[in-house]
């Protein structure tokens, strides 16, 4: 009797197990082989639609509505909302189709956009972390030379009309002895190169206008100094410095926003490098024999 009960119980268990397995397989099969797959029971309130399991966010919909019809969700008509939603669903469907068709592999513009977006996503982590005041100050101290003002100079660049080195040297000697510039200019027939006649210039502009050699000489000059002659494409150049503001280190409070920018940029670079390493490490990259 006892044995019969046990056999019946075992049989019932096996039948229930088998029924459960078949039901599970049916659900999984339905999920796998129907186009819509597994669906959520409802739409979460933060979404306005779910397209093949990809949500369309309500915040995006609201923003799109405002951008297209300049109305808030409570002001827009049902037809306006429906139109915007239909367009967003269409966009989502086309993007999903594009992925199915392999556009991220084949299409150059898609690849460029995807690359930029992925890089930005990596960078977002760096941007999201707010540096503390102590971090900012430490970074400032370590890179204080970066936070100097840009140097400026106002000077004259003159050449003798004869373009002769000895005439230029004579003019320089006269100027250094204290002769007035106007008198020396007239006596030695000096003319301006015309390259630094616009008044005060930033260092980078002065370097471009004067050339490297003359700029290097100018950087050493003080207001009232005369330098040269320096050989250049316009002839032997004489430099007469009117005013020279050298770069000055900015205090932390003044440079703070730049320090924050640089610190974040630094973190972004580090994160990007780490991400590069991670992606390479986990990837299976095989290289052709001739390029190994």
């Amino acid at each position: 009797m006892m044995r019969r009960v046990l056999v019946a119980g075992t049989r019932r268990s096996l039948v229930l197990c088998a029924a459960g397995a078949v039901l599970g397989l049916l659900i999984a099969g339905f999920g796998l082989f129907t186009a819509r797959g597994t669906r959520m029971a409802g739409i979460p309130p933060e979404d306005v639609a779910i397209v093949n399991q990809v949500p369309i966010l309500r915040s995006d919909f609201d923003q799109q509505l405002r951008a297209l019809v300049d109305l808030s969700p409570s002001q827009a008509t049902p037809a306006q909302k429906r139109k915007v939603l239909d367009d967003m669903i269409r966009e989502e469907l086309y993007i999903q189709r594009g992925v199915e068709l392999g556009l991220p592999t084949d299409d150059t513009e898609t690849r460029t956009a995807l690359l930029t977006a992925t890089e930005s996503l990596v960078a977002q982590n760096a941007l999201a972390s707010v540096p503390t005041d102590a971090e900012l100050r430490a970074f400032y101290r370590a890179h204080v030379d970066r936070y100097a003002t840009t140097g400026t100079m106002e000077l004259k660049a003159l050449v003798p009309a004869s373009r002769k080195m000895e005439d230029a040297a004579a003019a320089v000697a006269a100027l250094r002895k204290g002769a007035p510039l106007a008198a020396v200019t007239q006596h030695s027939h000096l003319v301006s190169t015309g390259k630094v006649d616009d008044g005060e210039e930033f260092y980078f502009a002065a370097r471009i206008h004067l050339g490297d050699d003359a700029f290097a000489a100018a950087r050493r000059m003080h207001a009232g100094d005369v330098a040269g002659p320096i050989a250049g494409p316009d002839g032997p150049v004489i430099l007469v410095m009117h005013s020279h503001r050298r770069p000055v280190a900015q205090p932390f409070d003044v440079a703070k926003s730049r320090v924050a920018d640089d610190l974040i940029a630094d973190k972004m670079a580090q994160l990007t490098k780490a991400n590069d390493r991670f992606l390479r490490k986990r990837a299976d990259v095989r290289i052709a024999g001739d390029l190994e």
């Binding site: 309130p45 933060e46 309500r58 609201d62 808030s72 969700p73 409570s74 002001q75």
Partner: peptide, 12 residues
């Protein structure tokens, strides 16, 4: 409550 907040027009 969550749905009420998220479904509402935030400006209202």
């Amino acid at each position: 409550a969550r749905a009420t907040v998220l479904l509402a027009d935030i400006d209202r």
